[in-house]
Amino acid sequence: MAREIWKWLGIPLIMIAIAAVIVIYSVNNPTDSIVARMLTYERVFRVIREHMGLLLVSMTGAIIVGVAGGIMLSRPSLYRIGRVMETFVNIGQTVPSLAVLALFYTILGLGFNVAVFALFLYSILPILRNTFAGIDGVEHNIIEAARGMGMRPLRILTKIELPIAFPIIVAGIRTAIVINVGAATLATFIGGGGLGDLIVTGLSVHRDMIIVNGAVIAAVTAILLDYLIGKVEERVVRWA
């Protein structure tokens, strides 16, 4: 068991350590006074907190709405709407994240909430589509076997359809997280804060040290989240 946990946590811990070393070194050995002023522990922690805030709020909302919506659209009465939705989601996902954030800015203005809302809507798409497709993809004769043996519709949903669709739903959530982490670094452009702040500040004052710090933390966060949900993904399917 202990070895299992180490296997899971080994890579994440190493990555966090690398990021921490870079940040600590940079803060203690600034190349000049501008870096010293712009790159402080306080600032780093603030942008990380903002970034996590953006992610957590928008992803929690997106998972709830996406999964619930996908289930609803897969019911026979809404199935047709579900098929139409698939097309719209595919088009919606083609729209670049910067364009989405920019359009929300023109409509709603600046700020953390606007960024969260845009990220939330953008992240719903893959989750909604995968939930719908996952349930829709459950073989017809499996459903019919369940019905024929006397299972009630709600039991069929919770015992048969959702468990079988689960890996696909998790894959959708993984896609959403990767997109979301990427888009969250753009939130700074519409006043949403987050790790993008550090990068943009670094670029505007031409200090590579600040840029690299921001980029390292953002990259590590993204890789970690993807790695962890990848591990969860491996775990959930014992039966294939």
Binding site: T185, A219, A222
Partner: peptide, 14 residues
């Protein structure tokens, strides 16, 4: 591919 695009661009600038 997982690395945020903003971070990737930032790495390229130096």
């Amino acid at each position: 591919m997982v690395i945020p695009s903003m971070a990737m661009l930032a790495f390229m600038v130096p």
